[in-house]
Design a protein around this nucleic acid. Structure first.
Lengths: 224, 224
DNA sequence: TGTCAAGCACTAGTATACAAGTACGCTGTA
DNA sequence: TACAGCGTACTTGTATACTAGTGCTTGACA
């Protein structure tokens, strides 16, 4: 398990959760491997309590499995869950972007444009981590300006299934197309063209397609 | 706080969660009231641990607020969150019913029909609790037959905001219209008419409209 | 050698003890 | 009387101790 520093105001539970998610997404905790509350606790210099609370939360979205009195494990990759994550994201993102066309004011459009401008900047300056962060931020922003933060948070919790296989397939999607997609989406919102925006979003999200069969062959031991 | 019996195989955490949800929905724990882990523990004959775990889970969907080192409280009614719950439900249910038209086989349609038949039966026999349960089951079934159980579960977690104000407005919506809606939806699925099914679902969900202003007047002290 | 049973080592679930931080009231002083 | 400051009684966060249940291992016996 790869550990990074604990933030100053972060509680033990939040820290444990962050570490576990990171390590699961990047396969440092490999799918199917057993997790011991005791081991994790001592590794992270915490007691069982905060670690356990983090594991419970992760088990809610089935990325961690808890077998009472037996043990816990990182869930194997269940492609059905990956598809659920993709489905949920597609449906909600499209609905939100359509809604944004109806409700977004000048201020909101400006925020979106600012984000896209920064994406262009960091593309030139080759900073993929920052680009990834801005990409996430862009989508989060769409939910925020339409007042759907809680919906985003719930959707985000299941996205971990998708994030994990995305990290396996080594996609560094952050390219020109992605950014021009974002640009077009903001334009559609500014023009209040709901149909167009929805269409663009659908196309945009389809870029994240992953070759399931290839992954399944290469990492068959990670799959359910 | 109104308590019911603990199921045999239920863990303490599950029991605490069930009790808290029930009491919050039915306003036995009134919006804005403080919650003490200690009090709740002794009331439910549990220790703080399982109660605390339940509270943490409820705080994830903002129905309970935890102020570190200060206390916890039942969240006041934030109509924005209610709207988020309604939005999420509308969007996902429509998408799912549309999907069901593409994928549902004979077996699935039969399950749906069986459910509707039971609804008709319990309508005649005047058993509103059972009708409510069948209604929930009907919608859950749509997610199940399309393989979106996890999506349902996440959506369901935020629905508590809606359930709470629904219980305030004393809606016993379980009438003929509801059931005939269900019937029509199943027919559309059987006929694989996605557009129609979506339309019907939208109309169906719109029946649950709640008069916000009236509630806000009557229970202003419960609102944010 | 094969089989079965007892025990041990592990797990998660729960209870309890302790730490750290907050709010509020009381008391003493000006 | 007003106000400052300390102390107390609460809170949640964390650590640890205990309970109960699982499965594997080991050893005795047929």
């Amino acid at each position: 398990m790869r550990l990074t520093e604990r933030y100053s105001k972060e509680t033990g539970r939040e820290y444990a959760l962050r570490m576990l998610k990171d390590n699961i997404i990047h396969l440092d905790l490999v799918p199917g491997s057993m997790l011991s509350e005791n081991e994790l606790s001592s590794e992270m210099n915490l007691s069982r309590t905060p670690v356990r609370e983090a594991l419970i939360e992760l088990s809610k979205v089935k990325i961690v499995e808890i077998y009472p009195q037996k043990g816990s494990a990182v869930a194997l990759i269940d492609y059905k869950l990956v598809e659920e994550a993709i489905f949920m994201r597609n449906v909600l993102e499209c609905a939100v972007v359509e809604l944004a066309c109806k409700t977004a004011g000048e201020e909101a459009v400006m925020q979106l444009n600012e984000n896209v401008k920064l994406q262009e900047f960091y593309l030139e300056n080759r900073s993929p981590e920052r680009l990834l962060k801005l990409d996430d931020e862009f989508h989060r922003l769409l939910f925020h300006i339409t007042g759907k933060d809680q919906v985003y948070q719930l959707m985000d919790s299941i996205t971990i299934h998708f994030d994990r296989i995305r990290s396996m397939s080594l996609i560094a999607v952050k390219d020109l197309k992605t950014i021009s997609d974002h640009h077009a989406i903001v334009d559609a919102i500014a023009a209040k063209d709901g149909v167009k925006a929805k269409e663009l979003m659908e196309k945009h999200l389809s870029r994240y397609k992953i070759d399931e069969e290839a992954l399944r062959k290469e990492y068959s031991e990670y799959f359910l």
